[in-house]
Amino acid sequence: MSVTVRIPTQLRELSGGAAEVALVSGSLADVLAALDAAHPGFQGRLFGDDSELRRFVNVFVADEDIRFLDGLATEVADGTTVSIVPAVAGG
């Protein structure tokens, strides 16, 4: 079993065009570190110089915004999907 990370179009050049990447479970920080290890470049694009997620990067674990969960410490269990989505507006 593993977790699935959905890659937005803007970052698919880093994943060789793949829309989804399978990784081992763990905390969200672990999963994103594994993503960068598998496909170097994600770290610099998702995180700012302060090592925090950039403010226009939204991450969802099982469809819930991680700011309503435990942020980067959120546990990502086997079979769960993580979505990386740019902030969008509307109304």
Partner: peptide, 17 residues
Amino acid sequence: NRLCAELSGTYPWAFVN
């Protein structure tokens, strides 16, 4: 909004927002 952001990567539609 999140669904539309993900769909916009799949379909060649003009998602106005």
